[in-house]
Simulated scan of single mutants.
Amino acid sequence: MLPFYIMTIIGAIGVLGILGALLAVLRRRMGPRIERKAFLTRAEIEVLEYLRRVLPGHHVSCQVSMGALLKPQRGLSRKEFWRTRNRFGQKIVDFVVIDPDTGSVEAVVELDDASHDAENDRARDALLALGQYRVIRIPSRPRPTESIVREATASLRA
């Protein structure tokens, strides 16, 4: 027979194991750990300010879901509807320039920073083109200035 203190240690290890398993189950049920993130980067804040300055007759919205800009065509089967919707529903565009009188989107403006990939950008541009949106891309290098943003958006003031 084992000494009492060894039996106590084995029992304590068993209890700790059970408590650990229960804690793991509770964590899974509580859901993922979530934390707050920055809504805009410093560069996006600057470009937003430049857009608002150089396009005073327009509204500019930021971090807009492509699901607010595009929808699957009518008449698709349920499966094809969701397959199409899933191609763009979770994607976000940096800025949307809106005509304040009509509420129509004049252009989508993307700040091409380190998070952008040329191949993915072409695919996103193609999706937006299907919705007949004009996409204006502003490179993040060199750091955009008001004059760079003014030049990139000149067609919206014409």
Rank of each mutant, 00 (worst) to 15 (best):
E44H: 10
P100I: 05
D101N: 14
M7W: 00
V47W: 01
L128G: 08
V60I: 05
R137I: 02
F95S: 07
G57V: 11
G31L: 08
R141G: 03
S147D: 08
T145V: 05
G20N: 05
I10L: 14
R29T: 07
V47R: 05
S147R: 15
A129E: 10
R141L: 08
P3H: 02
D99A: 12
R143P: 13
L130M: 11
D125A: 11
V109Y: 02
I98C: 05
S155E: 12
G89K: 13
K79H: 03
L48M: 03
E44V: 01
V15Q: 03
A129M: 07
R52P: 06
S155P: 14
N120I: 09
A129D: 08
L130N: 09
A43Q: 15
A158D: 04
I13V: 15
T84A: 10
D113M: 15
R53S: 11
M7S: 09
P72V: 06
R36S: 03
I148N: 10
M1E: 01
E146P: 05
V135I: 13
L19C: 13
L40G: 12
Q73R: 15
E106Q: 15
L26S: 05
G131S: 07
R42I: 11
D101V: 13
V105F: 00
I98M: 05
D113E: 13
S115E: 11
R29S: 10
P32H: 01
S155A: 15
L111S: 05
F81H: 13
R27M: 05
A123N: 09
I6S: 07
L76A: 04
L23C: 08
A24W: 02
S115P: 14
I148W: 00
R28A: 07
A129T: 05
I92M: 13
F81M: 06
K37L: 07
K37G: 04
R124M: 04
Y50I: 03
G89D: 04
V105E: 04
D121L: 14
F81V: 01
Y133E: 04
S140G: 15
E44S: 02
L2M: 09
Q63V: 09
N120S: 11
K71S: 12
I138Q: 12
A158V: 12
P32V: 08
M1L: 08
I9V: 15
Q132E: 12
K37R: 14
S140M: 11
A68V: 02
R29I: 06
A152S: 14
M30T: 09
P142E: 04
S77G: 08
Q63M: 07
T102M: 04
M30G: 12
A152L: 08
V97K: 03
S61M: 09
P142N: 07
M1Y: 00
H116G: 09
P139N: 09
D121S: 15
V105M: 07
S61L: 12
R134K: 12
D117P: 11
L2H: 10
I136W: 00
L70C: 10
E151T: 15
L70I: 06
V135S: 02
L156D: 03
A21G: 13
V64N: 11
V25L: 15
G103S: 04
I98T: 06
